[in-house]
Simulated scan of single mutants.
Amino acid sequence: MRPIAGREELDLFSRLPYVLNEELADDLAQGHRRPEWMWVALLGNRLLARAAWWSRVGSDTPFNLDILDVDDSLSAAERVKIGVRLLHTAMSATVPGGSPPPEYSRFIPPDWRDKAATRSVVEDRMAIVEHVGARLFVERLRLEWRPRTPIPEPSGRLAFRPPRDRAELPALMTQALDGTLDAHSRRDLTRMSAAAAATRHYEDELARYTSPRDWWRIAVLPDGEPVGFVVPAHNGYNAIIAYLAVLPRHRGHGYIDDILAEGTRVLAEQDVSRVRASTDLGNLPMANAFRRAGYVNFGREIKMAWS
C-alpha cells in the first residue's frame, strides 16, 4: 500500500472505473491533487483498491476524500477488509492529526438503490468509510440544465442587479440562513453564528471562483428591497448555480422561480454546454424549483463525515 509515484502511474491508478477518472490528469496539473494524496493497494501488479483526496488549488491539506474504490471481483468480506486497511494507512499519512478528516463524497446514479449491482458498489464503499469512523451525513441530488431547455421569461415582479459591494452578499447570506434546510448550513449554525457561517461560506467558496462577479444577481422588488439572490459561477469544471436563496420574509411567493430563471439565463448567455447544481435530497422546495426550471436529476451524491 503506497501513494503513486507521479503522473506516470495514472494509468495504474485508473484501472478501477469511476466517473472522476477522466479529470485526474488535469487535476494533477492544476494542483487539485498530489501524487502523495493518491494511494493504491497492490497485489503484484493487480490493483485491489485505491483512495484519493482533492483540494483547492494552493491548499496544503486535502479538502475531501472523493475517490475510494475496490476491485469488485473480490468477495464482499475481502473488499471491505482491503478497503479499510488502505484507508487507515492512507489517512494516517495524508490527513493532519488533531482535527476530523475531510468528508467522503461519492457520485452515484439517481436510481442506485434499485439495481443490486450498483447498490452493492455504493454500500461497500460506505461500509469501508464507516469502519474508519464516518457516518452518513447527507444525500444530495445532482441537477443539470441543458441547452435548448426553455428558460421562463421574466415575470416582471422582480428586478435584478449585481451586489453593490463586497459586504452586501454575505449580509444577505446571513439572513438566508434563518430557516435553511441545507444540512451543511444547519451543522454550521450549531458551531458558529449565522454571520460567521455566511462569511466563511463566502470566503471559502464564492469568493474563490474566478468567473466574473458581475454574473451574480440580487433580486429586488420595485421599491429596491432585496428579496433573494443567485450566484451563477464557473467552478473550473462546469458552469454552476453556486448559491440560490430567498430571504425569510419573502418566502412562499414563488420568487425562487424568478431568481433561478435569472441565474440560469446569465449562464446560458455565456453559451455554456450545461449548467450544474445540487441540493440536499430532503430540501424539497429547492429540488422542486429546479425541476420546474427544467433541470434534470442526472445523479446523486453521498456525503459522509467524521464528527
Rank of each mutant, 00 (worst) to 15 (best):
A134S: 13
G228E: 05
R274M: 13
L20P: 00
P96T: 06
R161Y: 07
P150T: 06
E36C: 04
I240Q: 04
P102V: 02
H131F: 01
V296Y: 11
T180E: 09
G299T: 04
F229Y: 15
F107P: 01
R15H: 07
R46P: 02
R142Q: 15
G83M: 07
R191Y: 02
S92D: 13
I151Y: 06
L42F: 03
S155T: 15
A268K: 09
D114N: 11
H184S: 11
L68K: 09
V129G: 01
L143F: 07
W53F: 12
W112N: 02
L260T: 05
G252S: 10
V57S: 00
A25I: 00
P62V: 02
E123L: 14
R79S: 10
L169R: 03
V227P: 06
L244S: 11
Y18S: 14
P212T: 05
T94Y: 00
A219T: 10
P100H: 05
S193I: 12
L158H: 04
P35R: 01
V138K: 09
R187M: 15
E203C: 05
H184I: 10
S99V: 13
L47S: 05
F298Y: 15
S120T: 13
G31R: 01
R274E: 15
A29C: 00
E262A: 11
E78H: 07
